[in-house]
Structure formats: C-alpha cells, structure tokens
C-alpha cells in the first residue's frame, strides 16, 4: 500500500531542492545531466508504478519511451502538426501501446511477464530500426521544442528546459501518488498481493492491469516526448531493451515500490556513471561493483534502506529497548 509518509515528502522536497540548486549553479553540461535525470525520473516513476505496486516487472519501458519520442517526432517533423499535437500524440501513443501490451500479457507472471513485455518492446525496436519512413537507424533530426512563450518560458534555454522537466517530474510523482492512494491504486496493490483472490471477488483483473499499464505508458510517452525535445533528435536506440534494463536497475537501486526511490535511483546512476567516466573508460566495472555492493549492503534499495533505518529508530524510541526491531514485514513497502 502506498503512503505519502513525512519521510517521503521530505525526501521528495530535498531532492527537488537539490536539483534546483544544482541547476542554478552548474554549467552547460551539468544542465544536460540534470535534464537527463529529470526525464529518466519520470520514466522510472512510470515503471515503479506498475513494477513496485502492480508486480508487473516490465522490460518494455524503453520501448514505450521511444514510442513517445517517435510519436512526438513524427507529429512535428514528418507531419508538421506542431509540438502541442506531438505532446498529445506521445502521451496517447505511449498509453495505447502500453494498454495493448498490458491487456495481452495480463495472464503471464514473473519472468514470463518480463519476457513477454521484452518481446513487444523489441518488435517495436526492430521495426523502427529498419523502417525508412522514420529514418531507420539514422533516426530523425530536427525535432523542435515546444513554444511556451505564452507562459513566458523559452524552452530553448537550457536552464528553463531543465527546470521544466524537473517540474514535470514532480507532477508525474504527484499524479502517481494520487493514483496509488485512490481505490484504483489499492486494487492494483491487491492484485499484486493475491491475484486469485481479487479475481474471485469479481474483479476483471486483466482490465485493471491493462489500465494501470496504460497510465504508466502515458507517463513513459511524456518522458519520450521530453527526451525528443531535449536532444532534438530521435533514434531507435531509445527503444532498445538495454534502456529498459538500465531503467529497471535505477528503480531497484533506488528502492522498488517506493516511487521516490525510482527518481533517486535515476539521479544516482546517471551522476555515478558520469563521475566515474571522468576518470576511466572502464566505468562499467565500477558501476557494476557498486550495484553488487548495494545489494550486499542491504538489498532494500537506497530509499528502502533509508526508510528501514528511520522506522527502526522510531520504533526503538517508542518501544522499550529489549523489544527486537520490527522486521521487514511491518516496515517494507510503506
């Protein structure tokens, strides 16, 4: 069950504050990194929504992200419909593709669900890679950014664009949190806990799972549209399964089923990779060792670990000292 605990609120505000402070003080490349983190945070939140709360570990979120980017790119570059229409198509396209995947894979679980989503993602990747209409593997250049001058924003300015992406990441978090606190979200967690029981209760399980996957796809599509505007160029690499894989790593590293952890994981992985690669070309080695160490050190993910320590301290203060600390069952997935 999702609770917007004070610790969670504090973490969200702290991360947002840190990001703004970093954005205002850093150079051009720092803003590139910040924008990347904000966009990946939206995508990671989208994944955590279904993976952490619905038990649907997806390996196609890179593809949903790419579909969003290609929808935006097609609308603006190929069809000339303009950025607002592109944005709508990205969100809608991501939602539709995800809903369809969610609907047909609803009966699969665990590794089989992972592989089924991978299959659909890779089909989309292979199609775009070889499709001349969308530029094949060379991709589509010349993607414009949204003209937000009516709001007094110049999105071609790196700082404005980074902060806009950051604001949208906060919005994505708020929407996801609200959804998880609604009856819909509670049902979703119920399905994860015991799908058979929910079915016996008369719930059309597949429809519920597909809808949740669709919402997640809409957020992924939004992230894709932002990525297309950020680089002003799209290529099939966005859809490759390794993007989904790295995304899953971000979510697990940050703490699966915590929502804020997903965003934290995105930030930590992007900055870790960047900092390490300043010193060596062999950044894979260092990042790989960090991932292994993170699991050996606790296995709850970064935010999960923080929450675990926090709860233990609180429990220790409340209860007499001889009572053992509560175990994971009572503190996990707050």
């Amino acid at each position: 069950m999702f609770h917007q605990t004070p610790l969670k609120t504090a973490t969200v505000l702290l991360l947002a504050g840190l990001a703004v402070a970093y954005g205002l003080s850093t150079g051009f490349f720092g803003l590139e990194l910040l924008t990347e983190v904000a966009i990946l945070a939206i995508l990671a939140i989208a994944l955590d929504l279904v993976a952490g709360y619905g038990g649907m570990i997806s390996l196609c979120h890179g593809a949903l992200y790419g579909v969003g980017a290609y929808a935006f790119g097609s609308a603006t570059v190929l069809l000339g419909w303009g950025a607002p229409a592109g944005l709508a198509m990205a969100v809608g396209g991501g939602a539709l593709f995800a809903w369809a995947i969610g609907a047909v894979t609803a009966r699969t679980h665990g590794i089989f669900f992972i592989m089924a989503t991978l299959a659909f993602g890779q089909m989309a990747y292979a199609y775009l890679f070889e499709s001349p209409v969308f530029g094949g593997n060379d991709g589509l250049p010349g993607v414009p950014r949204l003209d937000a001058s009516a709001l007094g924003l110049d999105l071609n300015d790196s700082l404005t664009f980074a902060l806009t992406c950051l604001a949208l990441a906060l919005l994505a978090y708020a929407v996801s949190a609200a959804l998880l606190r609604s009856g819909f979200g509670r049902t979703l967690v119920g399905i994860r806990a015991n799908e058979a029981r929910m079915r016996v209760l008369g719930l059309p399980v597949w429809r519920h799972k597909a809808a949740a996957f669709g919402v997640s796809g809409a957020l992924a599509g939004l992230a894709g549209a932002l990525a297309a505007q950020h680089t002003m160029y799209i290529s099939p690499g966005l859809l490759h399964w390794t993007v989904s894989g790295e995304l899953l790593i971000m979510v697990i590293l940050g703490g699966l089923g915590t929502l804020v952890g997903a965003a934290l994981g995105a930030g930590v992985l992007v900055f870790l990779k960047h900092e390490v690669s300043r010193f060596t070309d062999h950044w894979h080695l260092v990042v790989g060792l960090v991932l292994i160490a993170a699991v050996l050190a606790g296995g709850r993910g970064l935010y999960g670990q923080l929450e675990h320590l926090w709860e233990r301290r609180r429990a220790a203060r409340r209860a007499p000292p001889e009572t053992p600390a509560p175990d994971e069952e009572t503190t996990g997935h707050a």
């Binding site: 150079g27 051009f28 490349f29 990194l33 950020h230 680089t231 160029y233 690499g237």
Partner: peptide, 15 residues
C-alpha cells in the same frame, strides 16, 4: 549512442 554524443558535443562547444 546518439543522445550521449549530442550531450557531449554541447558540452565541448558550450562549456
């Protein structure tokens, strides 16, 4: 990776 290449190109030119 094209997006990484573009980020790095921006960094080289602007920063």
């Amino acid at each position: 990776k094209p997006p990484v290449g573009l980020s790095k190109a921006r960094k080289l030119i602007l920063q």
